[in-house]
C-alpha cells in the first residue's frame, strides 16, 4: 500500500476549507444539522486517530469504542460530580484514562499477538469494558450519565460560556482542528515515518535499530488517548453518556470512515466521516436501515474499492490526465 506524500500547503488549505465549511453551517442550517455537524467533526478525529494506528503502524483495533467511551464517561463523571474542575483538566484526565487503557491493552496483547489476533483481543477487552460500564453504579449502569452540562472556560480575563448558543459548536470545531493538526504532525514527521517502516517490514526496521514493540505501543497509546479526547469533547455536546458508546458495534465506525475515505490518505477518514454523516442524514427516516447501510457500505468498499473514495478519485484523475495531456499540447 502506498502512502500519500506529505505536502503541508495542501494539508493546511484542505483543513482551512473544512473548518470554513463547518463554520458556515450554523448560519445556514437548523439546530439538528448543527448537532450532526458537530458529531461529524468529532467523528473525523475518531476516524483519523484509528487510522493513525491502522495505516501507519498496522494495528487493527476492534476496541476503539472503549477508548471513546472511557473518555466520554470520564468527562461525564467529572462534569457531573466534580464541576469545580476546569474543563481543560477534565479533558486531560480523559485523555490520560484513554491512554492508560490503551497502554494496558497494548502491554498485554501487542507483543503476543498481531493482525487478526490482536483485533480479537481488543474486541474481548472492549466487551469487558462495556460490561463494567453497564454494571458500575457510579457510571449510571444501563442508563448512563445524564445532565452533562456544557462547561464554562475561565481564561483569567474573560470567561467563555460554552453553554450559550452555538458556543460549544465552535469549541468543537476549534479543538477538532487542533487535534487533526496534531495527528497530521505525528503522521508525517520522523515518528510517523518510522512507524511506516515498522509496518512495511518489521524485521528490517528492527535491524535499523527501531524498537518495533515500543513504536507500536506508542502508536496505540496515542490513538487511544486522542480517541478518548474525542469522546470527552462529545460528552457535553450530547449532554448524555450511554453504554452504547462502549458497545462493540460502535467500534465499526472509525473502521468504516477509514475504509470509505481511503486508509492510505491522512484525510481519508475525514472524507469517510463526512460522507457517512450525509448518508446517515439522508436515510434518517428509514428505521432499521442503518445497520444495512453501514454493513453494506463497508462490504462494498472492501470488495470493490479497497482504496476508498480518495483512492478511486486518485486513479480516476490519473486516467483522465493521461489521455488529455497530448490534447493540451496540441492546442498550445
Amino acid at each position: 500500500m502506498t502512502i500519500a506524500r506529505v505536502r503541508p500547503a495542501i494539508f493546511f488549505s484542505l483543513l482551512a476549507l473544512l473548518v470554513a465549511g463547518a463554520l458556515i453551517v450554523p448560519h445556514v442550517a437548523n439546530r439538528g444539522v448543527v448537532f450532526l455537524s458537530g458529531v461529524v467533526a468529532i467523528n473525523v478525529v475518531f476516524g483519523i486517530a484509528f487510522n493513525l494506528a491502522f495505516a501507519k503502524a498496522g494495528i487493527l483495533s476492534f476496541g476503539n469504542a472503549m477508548f471513546f467511551a472511557v473518555g466520554a464517561y470520564c468527562a461525564g463523571y467529572l462534569i457531573t460530580q466534580q464541576n469545580h474542575l476546569p474543563f481543560v483538566v477534565i479533558l486531560l484526565a480523559a485523555a490520560g484514562c484513554g491512554g492508560l487503557l490503551a497502554l494496558v491493552t497494548g502491554l498485554l496483547a501487542l507483543r503476543r499477538a498481531s493482525g487478526v489476533y490482536f483485533a480479537v483481543i481488543t474486541l474481548a477487552v472492549g466487551a469487558l469494558v462495556h460490561v463494567l460500564i453497564m454494571k458500575l453504579n457510579f457510571l449510571g449502569r444501563n442508563d448512563g450519565l445524564v445532565g452533562v452540562n456544557r462547561p464554562i472556560i475561565d481564561l483569567g480575563l474573560v470567561e467563555l460560556d460554552l453553554a450559550r448558543g452555538d458556543a460549544y459548536y465552535y469549541f468543537i470545531i476549534a479543538s477538532c482542528a487542533l487535534l487533526v493538526t496534531l495527528m497530521w504532525v505525528l503522521w508525517s514527521n520522523r515518528f510517523g515515518r518510522s512507524l511506516q517502516g515498522v509496518k512495511s517490514d518489521p524485521m528490517r526496521a528492527s535491524f535499523l535499530g527501531i524498537d518495533i514493540d515500543r513504536k507500536r505501543l506508542i502508536a496505540l497509546v496515542l490513538s487511544g488517548s486522542i480517541t478518548a479526547l474525542a469522546g470527552a469533547i462529545y460528552a457535553p455536546w450530547a449532554q448524555i453518556v450511554t453504554p452504547e458508546l462502549a458497545h462493540w458495534s460502535f467500534s465499526t465506525m472509525p473502521l468504516l470512515f477509514t475504509l470509505l475515505g481511503g486508509s492510505a490518505f491522512f484525510l481519508g477518514p475525514a472524507v469517510g466521516a463526512i460522507l457517512f454523516g450525509l448518508l446517515d442524514y439522508a436515510t434518517r427516516s428509514l428505521i432499521g436501515i442503518s445497520d444495512l447501510l453501514v454493513g453494506g457500505l463497508l462490504l462494498a468498499v472492501v470488495l470493490s474499492v479497497p482504496g476508498g473514495v480518495l483512492g478511486l478519485l486518485g486513479s480516476l484523475l490519473a486516467r483522465v490526465r493521461a489521455p488529455s495531456s497530448p490534447r493540451r499540447e496540441g492546442r498550445a
Binding site: 487493527l60 476492534f62 493482525g115 487478526v116 483485533a119 458495534s249 465499526t252 473502521l255 475504509l259 432499521g288 436501515i289 442503518s290 445497520d291 444495512l292 447501510l293 453501514v294 454493513g295 453494506g296 457500505l297 463497508l298 462490504l299 472492501v302 470488495l303 479497497p306
Partner: peptide, 22 residues
C-alpha cells in the same frame, strides 16, 4: 490481507443484523 477479510466478515454481520431488523 487477513485484516481486510476480518473487516469484510464484520460488515456481513452488520448486514445480517439489518436484514433481521427489516
Amino acid at each position: 490481507d487477513g485484516v481486510y477479510v476480518l473487516i469484510a466478515t464484520y460488515a456481513l454481520l452488520l448486514v445480517c443484523d439489518g436484514v433481521v431488523k427489516l
